[in-house]
Simulated assay, not measured.
Amino acid sequence: MMLATTKVEDLDRFLRIFSTKGAEKRRQHGSKGASVFRDPVEKDRVWVLFDWDADGWQHYVSDPDVAPILREAGHIGAPQPAQLVGEYEA
């Protein structure tokens, strides 16, 4: 699992591309799924929890076909992975 965040111009536009073209490209790089959350404070920020490993993410972000998809989805800047700082039971 991994968590990433990004800002978007329009949530509906982002979700439309994320769930279609974006999903196809992520699947090519090993993503098994994603859950999207809207930030409660910054309305233009989304958080995405991916069922994906770090190697797949790195291959995805280095794929030259990804940048046009991100632009079409209305990303403001590049998605940033959150740094995992601990894992705990319960």
Rank of each mutant, 00 (worst) to 15 (best):
A78C: 12
G30C: 06
Q83N: 09
L11A: 11
I17M: 07
L49F: 03
V61H: 09
D51Q: 11
P40R: 11
V48N: 00
I69P: 09
E87F: 08
I17C: 01
E72P: 15
R45P: 15
V66N: 12
E72K: 07
L70A: 12
V85N: 06
M2F: 01
Q58I: 10
R26M: 06
V66L: 13
L49S: 05
R38V: 11
T5V: 04
Q83A: 14
A78E: 10
A73H: 09
V8S: 01
D63R: 08
V36Q: 14
H75P: 13
G77N: 06
D63V: 06
Q58G: 14
S62L: 11
D10R: 07
P79I: 00
A34Y: 08
D44A: 02
Y60E: 01
R26G: 02
K7H: 09
D55Q: 15
E24C: 10
R38H: 11
V61L: 10
L11N: 04
M2S: 05
P81T: 04
W52P: 00
G33W: 08
E42N: 15
D12E: 12
G33E: 02
A90V: 10
A34W: 04
A4F: 05
D39L: 10
T5C: 00
R71A: 07
I17W: 00
F14W: 06
G22H: 07
G86R: 11
P68M: 02
A90M: 06
L11C: 12
K43V: 09
V85G: 00
L84I: 14
K32D: 02
V85I: 14
D63M: 03
D51V: 01
D44K: 02
R13P: 00
S31D: 15
A73L: 06
D10N: 15
R13F: 04
D53Y: 03
L3R: 11
V36F: 01
S19K: 14
A73F: 04
G77K: 13
R26Q: 08
D53N: 15
G56W: 02
Y60M: 13
D63T: 05
P40Y: 06
E9F: 14
K7Q: 11
V41Y: 13
R13A: 01
I17R: 07
V61F: 05
E24Y: 14
T5W: 03
D53L: 14
S31Q: 13
P68Q: 08
W47P: 01
S35R: 13
R27K: 11
E9D: 03
W47L: 14
M1Y: 04
R45C: 10
R27S: 13
T5Q: 04
P40Q: 08
A67C: 04
V48F: 07
R16I: 12
G30A: 03
G56M: 00
V61C: 05
M2L: 10
G74L: 07
K21S: 11
D10K: 12
I17S: 04
Q83T: 10
E89K: 13
V46P: 01
A82M: 13
V48K: 06
